[in-house]
């Protein structure tokens, strides 16, 4: 196999570190970029450095923002009586796309996972408890971690943390996806859907 020039080698190496990108995709991306005018690469690298420099967690909810507080936390129209707890900033985006949730968010920064060395101190759990205690208007915490073993366990941990506080803690429903096919759903999905059934 022909060796790459050192600078190209370095570029491939950096690209391959990204999630979902293997050697082939890295190669495709690199050669594509190299075919484009210099300006394209400059724009990409400055966008990357700029985003990295300007963005940081919101002081209240830990969503990404360029200000002290994020856009959602500063909006006066948001419903301050509920907080929706998610794993990552990308989950906030997903809920915002629904246009149906008007409350506040809290970004945990992942789930508890001893295997990956992530304990309670590595998530924004203390901050969540502090927020709950400070905000007397709060009525409900909705835990929207992924329906995985880790997501469920983290939800359970949050429920325990908030045991002393008189506030409703709920978990996102799980069951059949819209447009799904009952016939092809696996047993555990069907079971959860059955447990969470509603009167129509």
């Amino acid at each position: 196999m022909a060796e790459y020039p050192p600078s190209l080698e370095r570029l491939l190496h950096e690209l391959e570190k990204l999630p979902g990108i293997g050697p082939r995709t890295a190669q495709r991306l690199a050669f594509h970029l190299l075919k484009q005018p210099m300006e394209t690469s400059r724009a990409l690298s400055s966008a990357l450095v700029d985003a990295r420099a300007k963005l940081h967690p919101c002081q209240d909810c830990y969503n990404l923002t360029e200000e002290t507080l994020c856009r959602i936390c500063t909006m006066s129209t948001r419903d301050k009586t509920s907080i929706l707890v998610v794993e990552d900033p990308s989950d906030v985006v997903a809920f915002e796309r629904t246009h149906e949730y008007h409350g506040l968010f809290h970004v945990l920064g992942g789930t508890l996972s001893p295997l990956e060395g992530r304990g309670p101190q590595d998530l924004t759990l203390d901050a969540l408890v502090a927020r709950v205690k400070k905000n007397s208007n709060l009525k409900e915490i909705i835990v929207a971690t992924d329906p995985t073993v880790e997501g469920d366990s983290t939800a359970l941990y949050i429920q325990q943390l908030l045991k002393g506080v008189r506030i409703k803690v709920t978990r996102l429903a799980r069951g059949m996806p819209s447009g799904g096919d009952v016939e092809y759903a696996d047993e555990s999905t069907l079971l959860k859907a059955l447990e969470g059934r509603r009167e129509i």
Binding site: P114, V149, S153, Q160
Partner: peptide, 25 residues
């Protein structure tokens, strides 16, 4: 089981509150 064993191996003080959440699943 893997998560729980990993937690048990880490020998963290006051691990109880973290341990019980893996008991359930």
């Amino acid at each position: 089981l893997k998560q729980r064993n990993s937690l048990l191996r880490q020998k963290i003080p006051n691990v109880e509150a973290q341990l019980v959440i893996w008991d359930e699943p």
